[in-house]
Design a protein around this nucleic acid. Structure first.
Lengths: 206, 206
DNA sequence: TAGTTGTACGAACGATCGTACAATTAGTTT
DNA sequence: AAACTAATTGTACGATCGTTCGTACAACTA
């Protein structure tokens, strides 16, 4: 085994850091990354304000670390389960179902973390926006490639655009209007769209 | 003519108020309704902080007024042009095109005002959220009814959900990634989905 | 002309923001 | 046990937040 940390001090520090970031991601999914305040975070976690601050050195770094932490949770919750399926339609369906479950289960109390912070930072320049946009591109291209691995798909870019649109719409409607039906509408939309793409593919194959 | 305001004082006040709200809606589309600060607004408009404050009495009231002002602009920009078309497919297409133009033209510098503030307030209770949710419901039901007015449409709720999803996705992608192609993808998606609904309708009619 | 109303202003309020720095505690190494 | 190191704390700072207050002045009414 490598990387065995025997130093109890840094061990404790890393645990504190993890707790901070977990709570930070929860708060940010509801109040946004600007709504995140170091003082409030410290109060809720019952640690000192300077203790929280020392872990990151600046508010921007706290925001960036929060985004990274949320991305790790997203990958674990949505992307990794889909990787157990073989490439193709099965993996795509698992991916989309996983996303809807991730949103519906309120992995983050405010619904999808990235929906919230994307809308918050999409129009203001800076490192936080760049990080969010980077993860967004990664997610888009992962969906596109998963779609493209299905035989007979003609326009994976277009199809990925539409599928992701259904997911985000479900999240938005559910959180804003407390409407659980949004998810079933998204599932209906996904199923119909994939069926359409499937028949188009088999028609083109003739 | 009714409502003739001859009082130059309130006339001047209303004009100031309009200027404040126009700028407030612009700022909020980029920085959010919480990013709106009375001091900053006063600074940019070169009026006093207390002058701005006096118009609304509280920050929450300023936010509510800003939402109402943005809604009026939205209606004028998107809803009203569609009303010149007769109910049916023509009106729906005009409505969706109008929405995409409203977003693409950056009527608000941060893209669609309601996309921004919806994501900001969707998970926190209060009067601002209620107002935003109310306008969201109005918009959804207006799209649904416009869809339902097309002969042969079977599930207007589902179709409206999908169409609005394409619009919001285009706005989100365009603003975050500076990707103008997002709008053409949305237009492709809308056209294909309407064609699909149309053929389903004519098939069912046989 | 005298009195009243409405808008805008400047100054100040307590609270909270992010940040800085020295002191302290806990754990590791000699 | 002493020296050292890393995590955490307490105190303090300047800036900005929303809000309150008394005032100035223009515009209306009588």
């Amino acid at each position: 085994m490598e990387d065995v940390k025997v130093d109890g001090r840094v061990e404790r520090g890393e645990q504190t850091r993890r707790q901070i970031l977990r709570r930070a991601a929860e708060i940010a999914s509801v109040e946004g990354l600007e709504g995140l305040s170091i003082g409030r975070l410290a109060g809720e976690l019952e640690v000192s304000k300077s203790g929280v601050f020392a872990h990151f050195g600046s508010k921007e770094e706290l925001q960036l670390s929060t985004v990274r932490a949320a991305a790790a949770i997203f990958v674990q919750q949505v992307v990794e389960p889909a990787l157990t399926e073989p490439p193709g339609l099965a993996r795509l369906e698992r991916l989309l179902d996983g996303w809807l479950a991730y949103s519906e289960n309120r992995t983050f109390p405010g619904g999808c973390f990235f929906y919230a912070v994307q809308a918050e930072f999409d129009a203001r320049p800076g490192r936080v926006r760049d990080a969010i946009a980077g993860y967004g591109r990664e997610w888009n291209s992962y969906v596109r490639e998963t779609v493209a691995a299905i035989p007979g798909i003609t326009d994976p870019d277009q199809l990925a655009f539409e599928l992701v649109a259904f997911l985000e719409m479900a999240n938005a409607q559910s959180v804003l209007h407390d409407d659980p039906d949004a998810y079933s509408r998204a599932r209906v939309a996904v199923r119909a769209r994939l069926a359409q793409a499937g028949t188009a593919a088999s028609t083109a194959r003739r």
